[in-house]
Design a protein around this nucleic acid. Structure first.
Length: 620
DNA sequence: GCACCTTTGAAGTTT
DNA sequence: AAACTTCAAAGGTGC
C-alpha cells in the first residue's frame, strides 16, 4: 500500500514538474482560458512524464499499466507519439519526448491559431521543429545524446522535485503577476557558456547509498580548479576548508548544491516570507509549490481532501527521500573533500534529520530549530560537538481527533466569531462526539496510517523520547491539578471508580441533579444552579435530557467551570435527546446525557446539537 | 518569549 | 490492569 502511494506520489509530482517545465520550454503561460486542445496537450505532456517516470524509476514493469489511464486518453496522436518514442530511460530522453510533442502542439496550436508572437518572445521557434534533437535546459551544450555515455542518468522523483523547487524558489525568476517563472534563456544555443552549463546542469546523485555517490559537478574542470584553488588556500586552515569548499560549490557551481546549502542555512523571516507565494494569485503555481519539500511553508486552510491526504503522506515520503539524498550528498561532499582537500572528517556538513511533521505551519519552526542547532555546531566547531548534538525532535503522530481538529478548525473559525483555540477546541470536541461512527472511523483510519508511516520512518522512535520536551509546562499543570477541586477531579472520580460505583465518588463528583430547576413558560428546562455544572461537568451539561423534547437552557455561569471566559451568550441551547414523558416535567431518573455536549465557549456559536447524533451516552 | 488554555487519543509511566 | 501523565495542533491571552 505504501509503495503504491509512493508510486502515485512520484507520478503526480513528476507530471506536475514536467507540466511546468514544458510550459517553460514553450514559453507560454499557464492560461486556463486556453483552448481545450492546449489544455489537453499539456495533460498529455504530463501523461508522458508519468510514463517516463514510471519507466525510469520503477524496476517493475507492471507499474506501467498503472501510470496512465490510456483508455481515457482518446487522443490517438498522443498515443501514437508515445508509442513511437519507445521507453525513455533518461531525463534527456524524457525531455526530448516532451519537446517532440511540444513542437507538434506548437505548430497545431500557436501557429495555426495565430498565437501572438509576443507570447513566444525569446523563443526560437525553429527549435521546436528540431524535434529530433532539441536542446535540453539541463544540457544546453548537448545538441543530441548520441551515445549512452553522454546520457545523464535519470534522477529520482525527489531530485526532480528538488530541482523544481530550486527553480521556483528563486525570487528573481518569480513573476509577480502570477505567471510561471521563466528562464531568461528558455532555448539555449551553442553559445551558452560553460558556466551556464554548470549552473543549469543538475548534479547527479547516485541513488545507491551503499556506494559513494557520483558527484558529477566536482568533476567539472572549472570547478575542480576552484576547489583546488580553495584547497591550496585552505590547507593551512583545516577548520575552514570544508566551509570554503561548500561555499565555492554553493555560490558558483551547482544549483542543486546551492539548494542543499539553503536547506542547511538558517532561514530568515524575510526569506521565508519571500518564499511564501500563497498570496501571489496563481493557485496552480502555489499548489505546485505546496508539494515541494522546500517551499511548503504555509498550510492552506481548506479541508483535507483525499488528494490533500495523499499529499501529506507524499510530503513525508518525499521528505524521507530528501533526507537520504541529502545524506548521500553530504557524504559525497565530505568524501570528495577528503580526496581533494585531504580531510578526514565531515564536521561542517551536518546531516540533517528533518522532523516527522513537515506540515507547513510547523515546518519553518522546526527548520529553525534544527538550523539553530546546526548553526551552533558550526560556530562552535572547535568545541566537542558530540556532546552538544541533540536529537531532532520527532513529534508524535496525530491521533484521530487531532486530525479531525486540524481539518475542521478553519471551518469552525469561519462559522464562529471565536478565535481562541481553547474555545474552538471545545466546539470541536463536541462535534467530534456528534460524528457518526463511520465519520469517526475515517479519522481513526487516517491516524492508524499516520502511526504506521511514523513507525516506518522512525523505527526507533518512542513517545517516551518526547517526554520532558515541555517539562516546565507540564510540571505546572500537574501542580495545579492536584489542588483543583473542580471538574478535573470529577473526571478523575469517574475514571477511577467508574459509573457503576458512583457511591464511591467524592462529594463534588457525586451526581446531584436536584439542582435542575423547573420548566419555564416556553416548555424548556432551565438549569439554575452552578452546582450542576460542577457535578456533571461542562462537557456534559447542555444536553441534559428531560422529557420535553424542547430545549435545555443553561445559565452561562454554570457552563464555564474553567478559564473559558470567552463565553458571550447568556444561554446554551441544546435539543433534548430523550423522549418526552408527555407532562412537561423533567424526568431525572434513568435519563441519558450526551458526553461532550455543548457548553462553555460553544455557546458563542449558539450551536444546536444535532438530535440524531448522540454517539455516546452516560447514564446518571 | 513563553506558558496556558482546551479538546481527544495514543502511548508511556505509576500505582 | 487500572489509573494517571504526557504530548500531539492551534492561536489568542496574559505574564
Amino acid at each position: 500500500m505504501l509503495d503504491k502511494v509512493k508510486q502515485l506520489c512520484n507520478q503526480w509530482s513528476t507530471a506536475e514538474l514536467f507540466y511546468h517545465r514544458s510550459i517553460q520550454r514553450l514559453g507560454v503561460h499557464s492560461d486556463k482560458s486556453s483552448s481545450k486542445t492546449s489544455i489537453y496537450s499539456i495533460m498529455a505532456l504530463a501523461a508522458i512524464a508519468l510514463t517516463g517516470e514510471c519507466l525510469i524509476t520503477s524496476k517493475n514493469s507492471h507499474i506501467k499499466s498503472d501510470c496512465v489511464d490510456w483508455e481515457k486518453n482518446d487522443n490517438k496522436i498522443d498515443q501514437q507519439l508515445i508509442t513511437n518514442v519507445g521507453k525513455p530511460k533518461t531525463l534527456a530522453e524524457v525531455e526530448n519526448i516532451i519537446l517532440q510533442f511540444a513542437s507538434t502542439v506548437y505548430e497545431q496550436q500557436y501557429c495555426c491559431d495565430n498565437y501572438s508572437s509576443s507570447n513566444l518572445k525569446g523563443i526560437d521557434k525553429s527549435e521546436f521543429k528540431k524535434s529530433s534533437s532539441p536542446s535540453c535546459i539541463w544540457h544546453p551544450n548537448a545538441k543530441s545524446y548520441g551515445t549512452p555515455n553522454e546520457l545523464e542518468q535519470c534522477s529520482t522523483a525527489a531530485e526532480i522535485i528538488l530541482e523544481f523547487a530550486s527553480l521556483t524558489s528563486s525570487a528573481a525568476l518569480i513573476n509577480m503577476h502570477g505567471n510561471l517563472p521563466k528562464y531568461s534563456n528558455v532555448v539555449l544555443d551553442d553559445s551558452a557558456t560553460v558556466q551556464d552549463s554548470i549552473i543549469r546542469s543538475p548534479a547527479v546523485l547516485n541513488n545507491n547509498y551503499n556506494q559513494l555517490p557520483d558527484v558529477s559537478f566536482v568533476k567539472d574542470s572549472k570547478l575542480i580548479d576552484q576547489v583546488l584553488t580553495t584547497s591550496a588556500i585552505s590547507t593551512s586552515n583545516r577548520d575552514n576548508s570544508i566551509d570554503t569548499f561548500s561555499r565555492n560549490l554553493e555560490i558558483s557551481q551547482n544549483r542543486r548544491k546551492s539548494k542543499f546549502a539553503r536547506r542547511i542555512e538558517i532561514p530568515t523571516l524575510e526569506s521565508s516570507k519571500s518564499n511564501n507565494l500563497k498570496n501571489r494569485g496563481d493557485e496552480k503555481y502555489f499548489h505546485s509549490l505546496k508539494i515541494s519539500p522546500i517551499m511548503n511553508f504555509e498550510e492552506t486552510a481548506s479541508p483535507i481532501s483525499k488528494v490533500d491526504s495523499v499529499s501529506a503522506i507524499h510530503e513525508r515520503v518525499i521528505n524521507n527521500i530528501f533526507k537520504s539524498q541529502l545524506n548521500a550528498f553530504t557524504n559525497a561532499a565530505c568524501t570528495k573533500s577528503d580526496t581533494i582537500v585531504g580531510l578526514s572528517e565531515c564536521e561542517s556538513l551536518p546531516i540533517l534529520d528533518a522532523p516527522y511533521d513537515l506540515t507547513i505551519g510547523t515546518k519553518l519552526k522546526n527548520m529553525n530549530l534544527e538550523t539553530k542547532n546546526t548553526s551552533s555546531i558550526q560556530t562552535n566547531d572547535t568545541k566537542d560537538i558530540s556532546n552538544d548534538k541533540k536529537k531532532p525532535h520527532i513529534k508524535k503522530p496525530l491521533n484521530a481527533f487531532m486530525l479531525y481538529m486540524k481539518e475542521m478548525r478553519a471551518k469552525v473559525v469561519a462559522e464562529c466569531t471565536l478565535k481562541e483555540s481553547a474555545a474552538i477546541n471545545q466546539i470541536l470536541g463536541r462535534r467530534w462526539h456528534e460524528l457518526s461512527r463511520e465519520e469517526q472511523s475515517k479519522y481513526y483510519e487516517k491516524a492508524r496510517q499516520e502511526r504506521q508511516l511514523h513507525m516506518e520512518l522512525y523505527p526507533g522512535w518512542s513517545a517516551r523520547d518526547n517526554y520532558g520536551y515541555v517539562s516546565k509546562k507540564k510540571k505546572r499543570k500537574k501542580d495545579r491539578s492536584t489542588t483543583d477541586s473542580g471538574g478535573n477531579n470529577m473526571k478523575k472520580c469517574r475514571a477511577r471508580f467508574g459509573l457503576d460505583q458512583q457511591n464511591q465518588w467524592c462529594k463534588p463528583c457525586s451526581p446531584n441533579l436536584s439542582v435542575i430547576s423547573t420548566v419555564n413558560n416556553n416548555g424548556n428546562v432551565v438549569i439554575n444552579s452552578n452546582a450542576a455544572a460542577n457535578t456533571i461537568g461542562v462537557s456534559m451539561l447542555a444536553p441534559i435530557v428531560s422529557g420535553i423534547g424542547g430545549t435545555v437552557m443553561l445559565p452561562n455561569s454554570s457552563s464555564s467551570s474553567s478559564s473559558s471566559s470567552s463565553t458571550s451568550s447568556s444561554h446554551t441551547h441544546a435539543h433534548l435527546m430523550a423522549s418526552s414523558n408527555g407532562n412537561g416535567v423533567a424526568s431525572l431518573n434513568g435519563i441519558s446525557v450526551t458526553a461532550g455536549g455543548g457548553g462553555g465557549a460553544a455557546s458563542a456559536c449558539s450551536q444546536q446539537l444535532s438530535p440524531q447524533a448522540p454517539p455516546t451516552y452516560v447514564n446518571l
